[in-house]
Amino acid sequence: MRSFQQRLSDFTSRGVHVAAISVDSKEINENHCRKMGFTFPFLSDANADVIRLYDVLHRGAGPSGADIARPAEFYVDRAGTVKWVKLTENIAVRARPEQALSAIDAAARSQ
């Protein structure tokens, strides 16, 4: 997440928004963003409705067996079509901003 914040200007210069989604409450997100200096939206999906909608729920993987989101990244173009998906096979390995940026550039070229 830090790396996306560091490269945020590369996304905004391409007209692309970045948003993070988890089951964390608005309050946790507010504190965390203030502490870490995150300026892009951190969306609170406390009941994991959207997380289920995207089928990225990780049952029982949270604190005391709570359902949380697995790491997953999507690039959705302006028409609402998914152009890039990254579903990691290892929780520790997440998409890097460079991968998302090259997916955005590839999608722009193919239009």
Partner: peptide, 9 residues
């Protein structure tokens, strides 16, 4: 120009 959605734990 679209959005990157990052689902995280």
């Amino acid at each position: 120009n679209g959005a990157v959605l990052i689902f995280y734990r």
